[in-house]
């Protein structure tokens, strides 16, 4: 497994490299954001450990840049800041985990192992399907440049479908994942929300992105195609 460590504290970076190599990882070290960006572009790392406060290109910017160009390497952010908003911002920019300094080396190792289990799967912080964009962090939905106002339930149904683009999802899948155990109502409630969603995200744009597959369920497709 090959790791990239982006950290401007030379001795800390050196210690991490020694320690992680002793655990059997291959470790590259970058001392600033630009170098890290370059290394990440040249190699496919299995996980990246980065400090947020590094010179030239900070952790937030680097993380956003990596995700933008489709690099889904798991990212663990390190920071000496201890604000809860810093942590939330790091995770919402696309980082997978967060550790504040000073950290325990044992915990760092365990978290890196957990990140490696996740793999380089696509797991965007902001969901897109064609020009439909859904941001679960800010709870905003837009198509093109038009902001779409969704109710909480509509948002949840759409988010569930956008996480499975092109897949067939059944009515009971949606019921199971969007409604809680206590829901004992008519399964037709899904149809009601589906037609509300179509009215908001498709019809005003003359697009048909939610397909109904009679007898099996729904499929979200890139409506332009």
């Amino acid at each position: 497994m090959r790791l990239l460590v982006i950290e401007d504290e030379k001795r800390l970076a050196g210690a991490l490299k020694r320690g992680l190599e002793a655990e059997g990882f291959a470790v590259d070290v970058a001392l600033d954001g630009q170098q890290g960006d370059w290394l990440a572009a040249e190699n496919r790392y299995d996980a990246i450990v980065m400090d947020i406060m590094v010179p030239k290109l900070n952790g937030y910017q680097l993380c956003a840049r990596l995700r933008e160009r489709g690099d889904w390497s798991p990212i663990l952010m390190l920071t000496a800041k201890d604000g809860e908003y810093d942590e939330a911002e790091a995770l919402d920019t696309g980082a997978d985990d967060y550790l504040s300094k000073p950290f325990s080396y044992v915990v760092l190792l365990a978290r890196i192992r957990a990140l490696l289990r996740r793999g380089r799967m696509r797991r965007p912080a902001v969901l897109t399907c064609g020009d439909l964009i859904l941001d679960p962090a800010t709870r905003r939905c837009t198509r093109g440049r038009v902001e779409i106002d969704l109710t909480g339930r509509e948002f949840a149904v759409l988010e569930y479908m956008m996480r499975r683009p092109g897949e067939v999802v059944t009515k009971s899948d949606i019921l199971d994942h969007v409604w809680d155990f206590g829901f004992d109502g008519d399964p037709n409630v899904v149809e009601v929300h589906m037609s509300a969603l179509r009215r908001k995200i498709d019809r005003p744009f003359a697009i048909n992105s939610i397909e109904t597959l009679r007898g099996s369920g729904y499929r979200l497709i890139d409506g332009d195609a």
Binding site: R11, A15, L78
Partner: peptide, 17 residues
């Protein structure tokens, strides 16, 4: 925190080795 983190990491890496 920065020097503390570096200090702790160096010592823990040393111990782990």
């Amino acid at each position: 925190r920065s020097p503390l983190a570096s200090l702790r990491a160096q010592l823990e890496v040393g111990l782990a080795g």
